[in-house]
Simulated assay, not measured.
Amino acid sequence: MPKNTGLASDFETFLKMLTVQAQNQDPLKPLDASEYASQLAQFSMVEQQVQTNDLLATLGQALGGANLDKLGKWIGMDVRAPSAFQYEGAPVTLFATPAPEADKAIMVIRDNEGAVVDRITVSTTDQKTEWAGQGSDGQPVAAGSYSATLESYDGDTLLSTQQAEVYGQVVEAQVADNQILLTLEGGHIVAAATVTGVRSGT
């Protein structure tokens, strides 16, 4: 039974109860008319609240459907965002812009434990760096999760650090805390708001 039909039925039952109450009240102690009005007002408020809840539920379902449609468009796309990345043996392209006043820039590569595995001196004008997957000793590193941070220097003074952006394929998209979160291959999670580039998945 639709909720509105239920409300109408309950309202009719409520009126019947009021009628029986009025017919059987003590003539010497009649109920105050204001009590009837109060009871009617209370029922009306409940009815309006239920209808409001129904409307909000309908809106929520509509918005949820829209969000699901929006989320589905992320799946399979390659997105560029500041994130750790999965190294599987192929060179990784890292994106970061040195500070404008820097005269030296170093890309620092760390493993999943945070240990530095390589420090690469890069151009202060380039925004893209290729990491071949080698440690500071020139030997190939093991496959796994890594991160890269660009350090900008003026002489020996550290001006800034910036997490490098990488491309990763989206395998899951979800809404949490009023934002879209994207899970990339390897399990790394980025907020959609931090994505600076999108391309078709490979």
Rank of each mutant, 00 (worst) to 15 (best):
E47N: 12
V122D: 07
P100C: 05
G138D: 05
T161L: 07
S38P: 02
F11D: 05
A193N: 09
V141T: 04
G168M: 06
D156W: 09
R110I: 08
Q139D: 10
L18S: 02
D177G: 04
L159E: 09
A191P: 05
N4Q: 12
D111V: 08
S34K: 09
A191W: 02
V166T: 15
T52Y: 11
L63C: 05
K16L: 15
V171K: 06
T121D: 08
R110G: 02
A132N: 14
K29A: 13
A192I: 02
V166Q: 06
P30H: 03
A148W: 06
E130L: 15
D126K: 13
T202G: 14
P98A: 08
E12I: 15
A191N: 10
S9Q: 12
M1T: 07
S34P: 00
N67S: 03
D69T: 14
A143Q: 12
Y87N: 05
D103F: 08
F14K: 10
N24Q: 13
A66W: 06
S83M: 04
Q127P: 00
A22G: 01
A81M: 05
L56H: 10
Y153S: 06
V190I: 08
Q127R: 14
F95H: 10
A37Y: 00
Q61Y: 09
N4M: 07
G6T: 09
G197C: 07
V141G: 05
Q51D: 01
N112T: 11
T93C: 01
T183N: 07
V175G: 01
F85T: 00
Y146F: 13
I189V: 15
Q127V: 13
L18E: 08
N112C: 02
L31S: 09
K70E: 14
I120L: 15
V190M: 02
Q174D: 15
L71E: 03
I180V: 15
T183F: 09
E151P: 02
G138V: 03
A22S: 11
Q42P: 01
Q49H: 10
F85K: 00
V122R: 03
K3R: 11
L18F: 07
E35S: 04
K73P: 00
A176V: 15
G201W: 00
K70W: 07
A66R: 09
V108W: 07
A115M: 13
T121N: 11
N178A: 14
S145D: 07
D78K: 10
L94P: 00
Q42I: 10
A37R: 11
G201I: 01
L158G: 07
L184F: 01
T129R: 08
T196A: 09
D78R: 06
N112E: 13
Q25V: 03
D118L: 06
Q174S: 15
